[in-house]
Design a protein around this nucleic acid. Structure first.
Lengths: 124, 124
DNA sequence: CCTTATAACTTGCAAAATGCAAGTCACACG
DNA sequence: CGTGTGACTTGCATTTTGCAAGTTATAAGG
């Protein structure tokens, strides 16, 4: 039969986005990437203090979902960095809408500054 | 001295939004409310099949967060409905941005139809 | 050399959240 | 009286999360 389960929970776009991004950490990693962070230690040093096993898990899942690419930026010793794909960058309007609503309803919150300007190498 | 911990994880607006909405179910309840659903059984009947204990938990948290109001629409027996507050309705642009990105990257997903047009009249 | 440091993870385990089934309670209807 | 409905609650197993510590490779300093 051709009743292939195309979607995990339903064919609602919101549901499918939540199946990828619906937790307390994934979108914060995306936020850091949008702000220009690229390296493991940079993500770890964000004020929310993500645990290293959660970070590793989220980076792997984001890579599997095609939102992030991992690449070595040097050998000996091998060091890696993470960059948003075009698909990942497409989430910026979502983050923007969240920031607008968040700033309005959580007084005192502040948009974080970018950590690296210019030089926006985006890998397809 | 203002050493009061104003924020749970950080003063990032995104982080604070995620502390309220960052899981796989809360935004789906909001979606249902935006679509016009109001009653417990209506939320339960959505295709994602939320468990009743999770639904009760999320409705209580949404009410505590000021996104939803609960009110009796009849007595004997008491029956309640849930409505978005103005603050809750303010999330529509966030949902909209998620739908736009979701429809683009999850081919075959479809925006769900509203279930109730117009205002207060609730038909049985 | 030998100690210390750094990047990028991995492992172990306790705690919390989620999922599923079933139960509860107050009524209304026939 | 028996059945049905709405709105939850409860119990318990599974899954996910959080925290601390360990690992591997290499480099830099004394």
């Amino acid at each position: 039969m051709s009743t292939t389960m195309r979607f995990k929970r339903s064919d609602c776009p919101i549901t499918n986005v939540l199946d990828t991004l619906g937790d307390k950490w994934t979108l914060l990693v995306i936020r850091d990437l949008v702000l220009g962070k690229r390296r493991y230690q940079e993500f770890l040093s964000s004020p929310e203090r993500i645990a290293s096993n959660i970070l590793a898990d989220r980076l792997a899942k984001l890579e599997a979902a095609g939102l992030v690419t991992r690449r070595a930026y040097q050998q000996n010793p091998a060091r890696h960095e993470y960059l948003l794909t075009k698909k990942g960058k497409g989430l910026e309007p979502v983050l923007e809408a969240i920031i607008v609503w968040g700033q309005k309803h959580y007084p005192g919150t502040k948009r974080f500054p970018t950590v690296r300007q210019g030089d926006g190498a985006v890998k397809q």
